[in-house]
Amino acid sequence: MDFKQFSLSNPVAVLGAGKFGTAIANLIAANVDQVLLYTHKTTRAAAGQISRTMAAQPLEANIVVTDDLVTVLRSCPVIFPIVPAAKFRGLIQEIAAHLRPDHICIHGTKGLDLVEYDGVLTRSHLATMSEVIMQETTMRQVGCLAGPNLSGDLVKKDPAVTVVASGSEKVLSIGKQLLSQNWFRVYTSHDLVSVEMCSVLKNIFAIGAGMLQGMGYQCNTYGFFLTMSISEMHYVMTTMGIGTTALFGPAGLGDLVATCGSTASRNYMLGYRLAKGEKLNAILHSAKEVFEGVQTVKVIHQLMQFYSVEAPITALIYRILFEELPLKKGLSYLMRTSESATYPTDLPPPILN
Results as ranks from 00 to 15, higher is better:
Phe205Gly: 00
Ile207Asp: 02
Leu212Asp: 05
Gly214Cys: 02
Gly216Gln: 04
Gly216Ile: 04
Gly216Thr: 11
Tyr217His: 12
Tyr217Leu: 15
Tyr217Trp: 09
Tyr217Gln: 11
Tyr217Thr: 10
Gln218Cys: 13
Cys219Leu: 15
Asn220Val: 06
Thr221Asn: 06
Phe224Thr: 15
Phe224Ser: 15
Phe225Val: 01
Leu226Asp: 01
Leu226Arg: 08
Thr227Asp: 06
Ser229Ala: 14
Ser229Phe: 09
Ser231Arg: 15
Ser231Pro: 02
Ser231Glu: 06
Glu232Phe: 03
Met233Gln: 01
Met233Glu: 05
Met233Val: 05
Met233Ser: 05
His234Arg: 13
His234Tyr: 14
Tyr235Thr: 12
Tyr235Arg: 15
Tyr235Lys: 14
Val236Tyr: 01
Met240Ile: 09
Gly241Ala: 01
Ile242Glu: 01
Ile242Ser: 09
Thr244Gln: 08
Thr245Glu: 14
Thr245Gln: 13
Ala246Arg: 11
Ala246Ser: 11
Phe248Lys: 07
Phe248Arg: 11
Phe248Ile: 07
Gly249Cys: 05
Pro250Met: 13
Pro250Val: 10
Pro250Gly: 12
Pro250His: 13
Pro250Asn: 14
Ala251Thr: 07
Gly252Phe: 02
Leu253Glu: 07
Leu253Gly: 01
Gly254Thr: 09
Gly254Glu: 00
Asp255Thr: 08
Asp255Phe: 03
Asp255Trp: 06
Leu256Phe: 12
Leu256Gly: 03
Val257Cys: 03
Thr259Lys: 05
Gly261Glu: 03
Ser262Cys: 09
Ser262Trp: 00
Ser262Gln: 05
Thr263Lys: 14
Thr263Cys: 12
Thr263Phe: 14
Ala264Asn: 13
Ala264Tyr: 14
Ser265Asp: 11
Ser265Leu: 04
Arg266Leu: 05
